[in-house]
Amino acid sequence: MIKLSFTLNKTRLELLVDEMKPLSQILYEDLQIDSIERNCNGNVCGNCMILIDKEPTLACLVPAFRLQGTTVTTFDAFMQTAHYRNIKRIYDQLNIEPCPNCYQAKTLIFESILLKAKTKVQQTGDLDDFSKKFLNKGKQRFGETEITAETIDREFQLSSCNCMNSQELLEIALKAEEDRTKRRVL
C-alpha cells in the first residue's frame, strides 16, 4: 500500500491505496466518482480519459504511484474551464456534437490536439534566429499547420465510437483552434 497525496478537482486528497491500482479504479472505488468508464482494463478504449497536470491521459493506464503530487482533473471539472467553453462554443456554432457515449472522450481528444497545436506556436515564438531557421525548414518538410485530416484520423482512433465523420471532426478542431487564438484562451 502507498500513501498518496494529490489534487483532484482543486481538492487536496490523501489516500492509502495499492501501488499498482489504476486511477480509473481509484476514482470509482475509493472516491465514488462514476462519471468515467472503467471496464476496458487498459485496452485503450478511450472512454476513461482525464487530465493529469492539464495533459489528457487514459486513467486506466496510470498506476496509483504515478499520481504522487499531481493535479487530476475529471471531465466534470474540465467543463468549468475556458478550454471546454471554447470547444462547446464550436459544437453549438456548427450544430454538431459527439453522442453522449463518447462526448467526454472526444472532447478531451480535441483538447489534446489543441494543446499540442498551442505548444507548437509557443515554441516558435521564443526561439532565436538560428533555431527559427531550422524550424522553418521542418515546417516546409512537415506542413505548416499541425491540425490536418491525417492527424484527426490518427488521434480519433482512440475513440471507437463512429458518431462523427472525419470531416466534422476536422472542422471542429480547426474552428476551435481559430477561436482559441482569437479569444486568447491560454
Binding site: T57, K116, F134
Partner: peptide, 24 residues
Amino acid sequence: GKLAFNDLLLDTLHNTSTHIVRNL
C-alpha cells in the same frame, strides 16, 4: 528527431498509437 531521423522512423513513431498514448 524531427529533423534528424529518416522518414521511415518518423512515420513509424507517428503511427505508434495516438498522441495521448505515445506520451506514455
